[in-house]
Design a protein around this nucleic acid. Structure first.
Lengths: 104, 104
DNA sequence: AACTCATATCGTCATTTCGTGAAATCGTGT
DNA sequence: ACACGATTTCACGAAATGACGATATGAGTT
């Protein structure tokens, strides 16, 4: 075996954490996230309307946030509802803190 | 006054947190950060050499990480030493968590 | 003051990201 | 099967980012 107990800290953030950071490192996507405060559930169209952006733009931002582990999606009939993924967000923050603990 | 006690959570991450995220949302800069594990102190030239990148590139990455609150710099004679800024990193993580708490 | 070393800044180019409209896809109802 | 409404995917130009070499600045030495 390579390592016995707990790895001190990965040499670089894993893919999942890296995508989490990239997803959040955008003012536009940060604004998207605030729409989901309080556990609200919004469709792609609603997000597009509230932020006054194109629907395809909203779809792509939401997809990236979902890929980054910040949102989950649920399909009801034709409309797709997005919602903040509390669990994965917490996990990502923990991994981020673990990585940074290894750096200072 | 506008708000009395504690703001529940800013509508969008403040400038400082946004810069923190942008600084960290880059594989190259993540690799830079791991060099500072264990509190090591490195000069610009050492960083450039260890990562096999140009000197000006290293200088710019370090500047951006410093701007994002991840590093501090200290000048000794001609050489500038960078080091992880444990305190500001912790503060940034706390602000990030506070912002995300407002989103889920 | 002239010289040298380490770092920072500038100008440039290649790559990536962002936002948009057009077209394709998916799920539903007729 | 067809049509529809909502979303996703695609292709494109515009803007931001990343890396480099060349040049400028800062600090110390002779």
């Amino acid at each position: 075996m390579a390592t016995a107990t707990t790895d001190p800290a990965p040499p670089v953030p894993d893919e999942t954490t890296a995508r989490f950071l990239k997803a959040l490192a955008s003012g536009a996507r940060q604004q998207v996230m605030v729409l989901f405060a309080g556990g609200s559930e919004l469709s792609v169209g609603e997000v597009a309307e509230r932020l006054a952006i194109g629907q395809s733009t909203a779809s792509q931002q939401l997809a990236q946030l979902k890929d980054g582990g910040l949102l989950t999606s649920r399909r009801e009939a034709k409309v797709v509802y997005y919602r903040a993924d509390k669990e994965r967000i917490g996990a990502a923050l923990d991994r981020l803190r673990a990585f940074l603990d290894g750096c200072c």
